[in-house]
Design a protein around this nucleic acid. Structure first.
Lengths: 245, 245
DNA sequence: ACAAAAGTGTTAGACTTACACCCATGA
DNA sequence: TCATGGGTGTAAGTCTAACACTTTTGT
């Protein structure tokens, strides 16, 4: 494969800044991260990333990158940390990449220019996004071979410090969860209290007492009670709720 | 005045990234911010700022900038937010500056190069620092006419969005205060509980009940009780404390 | 009627808040 | 001995955690 059509150095981007998005979803009592696998030979996994155009707000760049991979707009998105270590460059990654992909660039001009772009040290601005996993149709970028959801507890080896970025995103989420719960979009439109509880238990990796959890959530006053949900199970049907808007 | 000796474009800095430091101190029941006034004609106030060297950690750059202005090392320093609006450039500031300072650069090469450096759009990484105001001997940089402490409630008009950056720093401090007991970095080596209380009241702009505050602080288990402090006042002498290390 | 799960109520303990009280200090 | 402010104790109120009780569902 060739990089002809991927030449960030030609575009009007700010240099040495990347945006890395940790896109979080929830299903099956697991927090999932949307992780692309790159097209190159060798198993390279990298967070959905991108650059900032000269005339673009940083937050808008993050929204754009998120939209490209998920097709979603109006997603909950939060800038949580800057990763700015000096040795934070792609050299190791690129060495491995070019060793495994000798034919990666044929045109020497492109090679030199893109090599210069990519071997520079990057400062990364970390964002995390919370999405309704059922609404997302993951989109590959031109550099992606595939893109899929991974359990956050079972992330493959990733390039550079991307595993650390994911873990810091989870820490930030834990800190913010309660105070911003109604903004969160990890659940479908309607849901039962049990489902919220399972979500909380997954995020914090601990269990909550059912009856107290129910009260705590209801007393937050952010839920609107809807009809009951009859599943056919031989027990009392739970109410459905949605977030007040 | 001339800019001959200040030519960031010549140095090996990362482009389009600045670090802005909100240096916070405390005295006289006021939170103070260390604000330099620039050497140019016209009243230009700007946060202590700087750039990141190619081979330098972002956090280290912040420490360096802080050290330059305060002479202090091992200061409490926290990265709190990235300011990344696209229209966040110095154009307005530079227009005003050059209008008021027509002789600012004599050498046309320098002028052009530095102009290009400064008119680009910058992404700023905001840090706040908490310092013992008595230990700081504020240092002017080569661009500063003066540097002094301002009550955070009485900040002069500043360039670009620097006033907003200060307010966001205060918000971040309020959120972090208890959990990181960072407040103690604002006090001298030894202090009374009354002094901590006044500090808290200043930061949160609200009053606390003396007796309960005392208990809360002592129960944090981070203070070591020292000798009494005899001031000559005709009342019981309070204990001095220091922060356990 | 029964098991299972949802929803509500109740009680003990922990933590907060308000304030009473005593103590040390210097005039 | 008095006024002042520091330090401690206590009682009421609020919040939290554990769990008992009641309700609803389908077999």
């Amino acid at each position: 494969m060739e990089l002809k059509n991927y030449a960030p150095s030609k575009l009007n981007y700010i240099h040495q800044i990347t945006i890395d998005c940790v896109i979080l979803g929830y299903s099956n009592k697991e927090i999932k991260v949307l992780v692309p696998k790159l097209i190159f030979n060798g198993d390279f996994f990298a967070l959905p990333s991108g650059f900032v155009f000269q005339d673009e707000d940083v937050n808008d760049a993050a929204k754009r990158i998120l939209h490209e991979r998920t097709g979603l707009e109006n997603v909950y998105l939060e800038q949580f940390q800057v990763f700015g270590q000096a040795k934070r460059n792609s050299t190791t990654f690129l060495d491995k990449l070019t060793a495994l992909n000798p034919d990666i660039v044929s045109d020497q001009n492109t090679a030199a220019r893109e090599h210069e772009w990519f071997t520079k040290r990057f400062i990364s601005i970390g964002y995390y996004a919370l999405v309704d996993i059922n609404k997302v149709v993951p989109q590959k970028s031109s550099l992606d071979q595939s893109i899929s959801w991974f359990n956050i507890k079972d992330i493959p080896e990733m390039i550079m410090d991307h595993e650390q970025i994911i873990m810091e995103a989870r820490n930030a989420l834990r800190v913010h969860l309660d105070e911003k719960i109604s903004a969160f979009k990890l659940l479908p439109e309607t849901f039962t209290i049990k489902e919220i509880q399972e979500l909380y238990e997954t995020i914090y990796e601990k269990e909550f007492v059912r009856t107290n959890f129910q009260k705590k959530i209801l007393e937050m006053n952010v839920l609107e009670r809807l009809e009951k949900k009859y599943t056919g199970a031989k027990n009392k049907a739970p109410y459905l709720y949605k977030f007040k808007s």
